[in-house]
Amino acid sequence: MTEYATSADGTRIGYDREGAGPPVVLVAGAMQFRAFDPTTRELAHLLAGHGFDVVNYDRRGRGDSPADPPITLAQQVEDLAALVDVLTEGADDAVALVGNSSGAAIALAAAAAGLPVSRLVLFEAPLDEDEGPGGAEFLDGLRARIRAGDHDAAVEFFMRDMPPAWLAAAKAGEGWPVMTSIAPSLEADAEALAWTQSAPRADLWRGIRAKALVLVGSESLDLMHAAADSMVRALTDAERGTVEARDHRWEPRTLAMAIAAFLVD
């Protein structure tokens, strides 16, 4: 049954919680939320079976976390703070964050903002070069389409750097109306990616003391490898790993085993 945390501005954030042990929050990427993402639900269940207290939540503007736009990165951090409070019951305990794709950038922003983060697992964050202009330009382009109310164009624009076949398959599938319905929430994903280029990453992430595992798939796009190398260089304590995955998609059992091994190390 869906439970709810209340964010700083009163927005209710829907989540599932399973298991017992060290707390873990799964931070979804661009098109993910619980009713649309059975793969992450399975990952949460498997991690709970490995002995963790796992929260899988609907990010603001999706599923059981409805919210009016604009939806910002700062709000995403506040939402995570509310979930951390739920998991720790106001104690000083720290929580592990597992971020997928652009959700990895949101997890990094939360850690940099001072949330009590014990460890970070970051899977294929699609970052451009350190201090490059691409993120800000991308954010501006996405915002223009969202503000115009053209949600199809917004999702198409968001996916512009992915292989064309991925967009074609998405548009031909039954899930396209769902993807376009959450288009306003993509602004926070783009803002998080732009934030990673807003200053030298080593400076942005200097305050992050949590140990990080930066993961790429065994069959991955070139940009993911370059992004992973950049994150490992910029973070204070990070290691790179590879998991069985292709086309920016992972297998839940394999990823759960990699996460569990890292979190208990």
Rank of each mutant, 00 (worst) to 15 (best):
M1P: 12
A8I: 08
G10T: 11
T11Q: 09
T11K: 12
E18C: 07
A20H: 14
P23K: 14
A30Q: 12
Q32A: 02
Q32N: 04
F33Q: 07
R34E: 02
R34A: 00
R34K: 06
F36V: 11
D37Q: 14
D37A: 01
P38E: 10
P38M: 04
T40D: 15
R41F: 00
L43D: 03
A44F: 08
A48T: 10
H50W: 06
H50R: 15
R60H: 02
R60F: 00
D64N: 13
S65Y: 00
P69I: 05
L73W: 10
Q76T: 08
D79S: 05
A82Q: 12
L83Y: 02
L97I: 10
V98E: 00
G99A: 11
A104Y: 02
A105C: 03
A113F: 06
A113M: 11
G114E: 05
G114P: 08
V117E: 01
L120K: 11
L122P: 01
E124F: 01
A125H: 05
P126C: 06
D128Q: 15
E129M: 04
D130K: 08
D130H: 04
E137A: 04
R143E: 08
I146Q: 09
R147D: 14
D150I: 01
H151E: 12
H151W: 03
D152T: 02
V155P: 13
E156F: 04
F158L: 05
M159A: 13
M162I: 11
P164G: 05
A168W: 09
A168Q: 15
A169H: 14
A172T: 12
E174W: 10
G175R: 15
P177S: 00
P177M: 05
M179F: 03
I182S: 01
A183D: 14
Q197Y: 07
R201K: 07
L204M: 06
R206D: 02
K211C: 03
L215T: 14
V216Y: 06
V216W: 10
S220M: 12
D222A: 15
A226V: 14
M231W: 05
V232G: 04
V232I: 05
E239Y: 03
R249S: 07
R249T: 12
W250G: 00
P252A: 00
T254A: 10
A256E: 01
A258W: 04
A258T: 09
I259G: 03
L263Y: 02
V264K: 15
V264D: 13
D265L: 13
